[in-house]
C-alpha cells in the first residue's frame, strides 16, 4: 500500500494567509500585547489583593481562562506540576521556619505555627499566581505571534529574530543530541547500556557539538543577509494578526482598571 504523492497545491492553506491568522478561539485570537497586559494586570492583582483568597482567586481565573481558550490540556498539567513542586516547597519552607505564637506542632527544632502556615500559604499562592501568568501567556500565545505584534509596535526585526532563533536553537540542540548519539553508535560506541554508558558516550562530544553549532552562525548570518534581512526598507508581513476591536480595548481597560483598583485598595484600605 503506498500513499499517493501530493502534488496538488494546498490552496486552502495559501488562502489562510490572506486573512488574519486565527486559532479559532476568541481568547487565543486576542492581540498578544492585549493578552500580555491582561496577564500583567492579573499578576499585579495577585500581589496586591489580600491573601490567601486574592491570589487563590487569580489562580482559579487562569484555570478558567485556559479552559475557555481551549488550552487546558497543555496548561493544566504544566501548572499542576509547578504547584506540586515549586508551590509546595515554598509553602513548606515558610510554614516550617517562620516563627509564630500559636504553635500547632513541634518536630524537634521545627515549630509549625498558625502564622507560619498562613504566611506560607499567602506567599506560595502569590508566587504561583505570578508563575501562572507567565505559563498561561506562553501557552496561549504562539511565540511568532508575539514577535510579530512586537515588530508591528516598532521592535526591530533583529531583536525578534534573536529571540525566535534562540528558541529554535534549543529545539535543534535536542535534535543534534540524537544525531550525535546515532553517530556514536555508528562508530561502535555503546550507548544503549545503562545511564553510565549513555553518559560516557555523550559527554566527551558535547563541547565539540556546541562549538560546531557556533561555527555555523557565520554561515547563517550570511544566508540571512542574502534574504535582505539587513535591508532598511520597511518590512512587510505575510501573516497578519486579528484587528484589535473596541471590545478588546474595553476588556483590556477593564482588567487594567481592576489592577489599579487593587493597588489603591492595598495602599489605603486593607494594608
Amino acid at each position: 500500500m503506498s500513499t499517493p504523492i501530493i502534488d496538488e497545491l494546498d490552496q486552502e492553506f495559501i488562502d489562510s494567509f490572506r486573512s488574519p491568522a486565527s486559532a479559532g478561539n476568541r481568547i487565543r485570537d486576542l492581540n498578544p500585547i492585549s493578552f500580555a497586559v491582561i496577564m500583567v494586570a492579573c499578576a499585579v492583582a495577585a500581589v496586591t489583593l489580600p491573601g490567601p483568597w486574592g491570589p487563590a482567586a487569580i489562580c482559579l481565573i487562569y484555570v478558567a481562562v485556559s479552559i475557555a481558550a481551549g488550552v487546558s490540556k497543555a496548561f493544566l498539567p504544566a501548572y499542576g506540576k509547578l504547584f506540586a513542586v515549586v508551590g509546595l516547597i515554598l509553602f513548606v519552607l515558610r510554614a516550617a521556619f517562620l516563627p509564630g505564637e500559636h504553635v500547632l506542632l513541634r518536630l524537634g527544632p521545627i515549630a509549625i505555627s498558625a502564622e507560619g502556615i498562613a504566611q506560607g500559604l499567602d506567599f506560595a499562592l502569590v508566587v504561583m499566581a505570578l508563575c501562572g501568568a507567565m505559563t498561561l501567556f506562553f501557552t496561549v500565545t504562539p511565540m511568532k505571534n508575539l514577535m510579530l505584534a512586537l515588530e508591528l509596535r516598532g521592535v526591530t526585526p533583529r531583536a525578534t529574530y534573536v529571540i525566535l532563533a534562540s528558541f529554535q536553537a534549543i529545539t535543534d540542540l535536542g535534535k543534534n543530541t540524537k544525531v550525535v548519539m546515532d553517530a556514536q553508535k555508528s562508530r561502535g560506541i555503546e550507548t544503549e547500556g545503562g545511564m553510565v554508558g549513555r553518559v560516557t558516550a555523550f559527554v566527551p562530544i558535547l563541547a565539540p557539538v556546541f562549538l560546531a553549532a557556533m561555527s555555523q552562525t557565520e554561515e547563517r548570518a550570511l544566508a540571512l543577509d542574502a534574504r535582505a534581512f539587513n535591508s532598511r526598507s520597511r518590512h512587510s508581513y505575510l501573516v497578519s494578526l486579528q484587528p484589535v476591536g473596541a471590545a478588546e480595548i474595553a476588556l483590556v481597560c477593564a482588567v487594567a482598571a481592576c489592577a489599579v483598583l487593587s493597588i489603591v485598595g492595598a495602599a489605603f484600605i486593607w494594608n
Partner: peptide
Amino acid sequence: FTQISGVKDTVFEEIALGLENLGVDRE
C-alpha cells in the same frame, strides 16, 4: 543546512521571508 532561517514554521513562510524583508505587499 545553514540556509534555513530557523524562525519560520512552514516552508511557505520560509520562502516568503526575503519578500517580507523587501517590504513586498502581501498579495
